[in-house]
Amino acid sequence: MKAAEQTLDEILNLAAVHFKVPRENLSPDGDFFKALGIDSLQTLDLLTKLENHFRVELPDYELQGVSDFRTLAERIQARL
């Protein structure tokens, strides 16, 4: 199983590439809505990319109330 920090790092890299944002602009505790300039619908798109990358199935509700990368990483880590 991946280490939690590695999961977090991979999420940040993936988000930066997918939404064409410089990686250095993203921080673990940063608000991904603001950092990526996306709305709640586009975060579902991010969830799909993360599923494909980590090969897990993430129900939509795993994103409910989540707005920072660290919490998102914890939710994914729990399913790895």
């Binding site: 579902l44 798109d45 969830l47 129900p59 939509d60």
Partner: peptide, 11 residues
């Protein structure tokens, strides 16, 4: 008929 989807992923 009503169709429900358990996900709202665009795809």
């Amino acid at each position: 008929c009503v169709v429900h989807l358990r996900t709202l992923r665009p795809e």
